[in-house]
Nucleic acid binder design. Sequence first.
DNA 1: TGAGAGTATCGACACCACGTCGAAGATGCC
DNA 2: GGCATCTTCGACGTGGTGTCGATACTCTCA
Lengths: 190, 190
Amino acid sequence: MAILATAERLLEDRTLSEISIDDLARGAGISRPTFYFYFASKDAVLLALLDRVVEQGQTAAGDVLDHLAGDPRARWREAISAFYEAFRSHRAVTLACAQVRATNAEVRQLWATVMERWVQRTATAIEAERERGAAPLGLPARDLAVALNSMNERVLYATFADEGPAVAESTVVDVLLDIWLSSIYQTTAP
Amino acid sequence: MAILATAERLLEDRTLSEISIDDLARGAGISRPTFYFYFASKDAVLLALLDRVVEQGQTAAGDVLDHLAGDPRARWREAISAFYEAFRSHRAVTLACAQVRATNAEVRQLWATVMERWVQRTATAIEAERERGAAPLGLPARDLAVALNSMNERVLYATFADEGPAVAESTVVDVLLDIWLSSIYQTTAP
DNA sequence: TGAGAGTATCGACACCACGTCGAAGATGCC
DNA sequence: GGCATCTTCGACGTGGTGTCGATACTCTCA
């Protein structure tokens, strides 16, 4: 769909609020009313874009967290890296979503669903590690999972948007990993 | 100033983009052109509001982190609580800022400055704890400080906005505290 | 005391983006 | 060739924004 392609292209160097529906329409070679034949609003376009990214990221992540026993550090690192790559490979779209999420309920909802999935996987993995005696008891696994995933989201956003205090792109995964390991295992070398 | 009061009041139950300049003007008992006599835009109003909150929060925080030695856990908890209270006592304003930050460079700038101050205090405190042998070496103190403060920001936002996966308001401070202690001291009981 | 320099206010205008409606080309199927 | 459905757009009304010029309201100082 030409509209989606146009949107993703324009988002590379403008923010969504700086893009008019007319820009999207003209970019796709159609008139403004015709735009409405395909999408109800600008936000709906972003939603569709996000849908695709999510779809794609979903499979990429896989089930790394189901095989922690062998080398926990390496597995957790893969999981965080997957998160990192998902963000990174569609930087423009995810940055735009973070913006629109504040205003648009549907985007917020979709994003929340995605986060929830990550949180649940994380919580399950933490509980499994405690079960097999690799990790000590501590915070409720879900609370810990929510906080850690929120941290990743915010830190990666700052890194990619290069906004305010941020961690360098080259070290950000390892910084996050250390905090995950510390708070789950009380050591960085489980 | 009546405009500021009106803005803070309206933000209690509407988002900033749902508030027109006319709403602010009428709420303050003036006409729309007169509004422009005082502020250049809606965003400028929010900026002024944020300024006040920051001013106020700045003093409230104080220098807790300069006296960690006695009871580190208690001191760190106070620091996180200060952050929590700053957010909480002006919930509407901070939520609005998080939204506008995405679009408005000035708000983004001011927010970044505030965060930077917190980050620096945190980093300094971590280094001091390592110096006196209370905390082990590990990540660069600044990277750790950035990540932990980002986590707080995002987690508290989710809690107050009641958006997506969040931690309960009653336990959020302790959840954050545990992660801070784990990643700084490699134990939750330093 | 009244002329002039600020301060504060608004009516009226032009502008721009949005969303809708109704009419009119394509396209395909019977 | 006729009919239904998909696709397109010109033209319109609406609502929020920002500006301009005119008018009032206050001081102050000669």
